[in-house]
C-alpha cells in the first residue's frame, strides 16, 4: 500500500505501508521541505497512527477508522483539501496486494 502526496497531479512524497498497514516501511521524498509541509512528522520516526490522523484531517473524517476505511470513504483519493490548496493524496495498492487483508 502506498500513500502518495501530490501537488495537484505531481507526486513528491510516497509513504509505503506493509501489507496489513500496521507499519511504515519506506518513505520516498523528492523534496524534503515539500514532504514536511504535507506530512510534518514524516522524517521524525512517523507512526501509522500519525499518518492516519493526518489523513482523517485531510479527508474531514472522524471516528475510529483504519487506513482501509479512509480509502473506502474517499474513493481512493483525497482530491481536494479545503484548507490546503493544491495538496492531494492518492492511495495505491501494491501490484501483489489486491485484496483486503485487514
Amino acid at each position: 500500500m502506498q500513500v502518495i502526496f501530490k501537488v495537484r497531479e505531481t507526486p513528491f512524497l510516497t509513504v509505503t505501508l506493509n501489507a496489513d498497514q500496521s507499519q511504515i516501511v519506506s518513505i520516498d521524498a523528492s523534496d524534503q521541505q515539500m514532504a514536511e509541509l504535507a506530512f510534518p512528522k514524516v522524517f521524525h520516526q512517523p507512526a501509522v497512527g500519525q499518518l492516519l490522523l493526518l489523513l482523517k484531517a485531510y479527508a474531514d473524517l472522524t471516528g475510529n477508522l483504519g487506513i482501509r476505511d479512509v480509502i473506502t470513504q474517499t474513493g481512493g483519493a483525497i482530491s481536494w483539501i479545503p484548507f490546503k490548496p493544491n495538496l492531494t493524496v492518492v492511495f495505491e495498492e501494491d501490484s501483489n496486494e489486491n485484496f483486503d487483508c485487514r
Binding site: V7, R8, T10, Q33, M34, E36, L37, A38, P40, K41, Q50, L53, L54, A57, Y58, K84, P85, N86, L87
Partner: peptide
Amino acid sequence: DDGLEVILANDSPNPEIYEH
C-alpha cells in the same frame, strides 16, 4: 499550480497534525 503555503511560525504551542 505548483506550490504549497509555508507559514513562518506557529501561533499556538500545540501545532495541528497537518502544520509544519
